[in-house]
Amino acid sequence: MPLTEQEFQKLQQQAKAIRREIVDVTGWSGGAHVGGALSMVDILTLLYWKYMRLDPAQPEWEDRDRFVLSKGHGGVGHAVVLAQRGYFNREALRKFNETDSMLGMHLDYHKVPGCETSTGSMGHGLSQAVGMALGARVLKKDWRVYCVIGDGESDEGSIWEAAMSAAHYKLDNLIVFQDRNRMMIDGLTEEVMSLEPLADKWRAFGLETREVDGHDLVQLSQAIEYALQFRGKPTLILCNTIKGKGVDFMENKPDWHYGGLSSELVEKAKRSIGE
């Protein structure tokens, strides 16, 4: 069902609440992958609050839709989403990064309810998502698999091997979002290792490809609606995003790939995100 005006308002508030808490955790933890967490928030908000079939009380419910964060360093963002969606108590976020806590920089499948697989090494998640989508077919299940990959991450050959196999097996129950924030650790993707023409590459690899503003909930929602009814191919939604989105002093600054925040900067960042 397309996004209603009421849903739009509600989800926008949700996305802001997620961003504010990502900033909080970055402050508490002494450091986090804040830039790339902020850039994917709108995608995750739509998935977890509108599109995914899930039950936070039963994270292992067999018929749930699966979500794989292939760019596993976005763990801080995923953790906040899972907490706010009710998979676990938000208090756990206070101990992010700490020894013996539930949450480390990259989420651990053994520890975090709602985390489908442990990621962090780039270019592993998409293959696992392909396996989950293929598994649904074998088991005659109708769950869907959603996967978020980075753009820098897509330098890895394994991403393209996974894409090739998803197309080969016509996995139309797989929807991939590429967080195209145009940055990686060492700088701009096009300067470190050029990816363009990216949409053409995905099409050539056999994925149904749509390009959207990755912060526009309406555009994102339309692309997901389209993917949900599309048959015969996996879908790739190329999401043009801004690294550090929402925090003025972080936006489009590769430095904020990973960083710490003083309490003063936490407040400044939250003011920038707004209520």
């Binding site: 002494g30 450091g31 430095d255 904020w256 960083g259 710490g260 003063e264 900067l265």
Partner: peptide
């Protein structure tokens, strides 16, 4: 990499 105190601000480039 112990927890840094909260008055400390840094980025990956300044470590």
């Amino acid at each position: 990499m112990s927890k840094t105190d909260s008055t400390f601000s840094w980025t990956v480039y300044e470590a």
